[in-house]
């Protein structure tokens, strides 16, 4: 959503439909959908962390290297990254505006991409190359 500057007149006049109806609805639906999927992610993550916390590499490879565990976890990580970016946008929209908002939103996107790419790359490496 690219923000428009909302003036008093726009707020006072119900005929001005400020904001982006499409993008805002998509934001809402995306957040609900990814949030519901994240419930599965949390249970899955719990299983993986409990099974592997503090373990050595052979154990990590044995569990995460199994495609039935590593690949779904990678897919869920991407969903989490989308949820993270969407949620952080809500926060940034509340407290920042203008070019500072756009800068922070850029950093937000970069961080989420970094987390997703690092996690997915690590999992793909474990699954396909051990």
């Amino acid at each position: 959503m690219r923000e428009t500057v909302i003036t008093r007149d726009m707020v006072a006049d119900p005929k001005t439909k400020y904001g982006n109806a499409r993008a805002s609805t998509r934001h809402f639906i995306t957040q609900r959908l990814t949030g519901a999927i994240n419930i599965a992610f949390l249970i899955f993550l719990l299983f993986v962390v409990v099974r592997l916390a503090g373990q050595d590499r052979p154990d990590m490879v044995a569990v995460l290297g199994n495609g039935w565990i590593g690949l779904p976890l990678a897919a869920l990580l991407v969903v989490v990254a989308v949820h993270m970016r969407n949620g952080m946008r809500d926060v940034l929209e509340d407290y920042f505006a203008g070019s500072l908002y756009r800068l922070l939103m850029l950093l937000n996107t970069l961080f989420c991409i970094l987390v997703a790419v690092a996690g997915v790359a690590a999992l793909l490496k474990l699954v396909f190359w051990g």
């Binding site: 490879v61 993270m84 952080m88 961080f111 987390v115 690092a118 996690g119 690590a122």
Partner: peptide, 19 residues
Amino acid sequence: GIANYAGMALLAIWLAAAA
């Protein structure tokens, strides 16, 4: 939500280290 946002980096670091 903000804490989880930052915390996901811990998961990514752990997975990357394992790989």
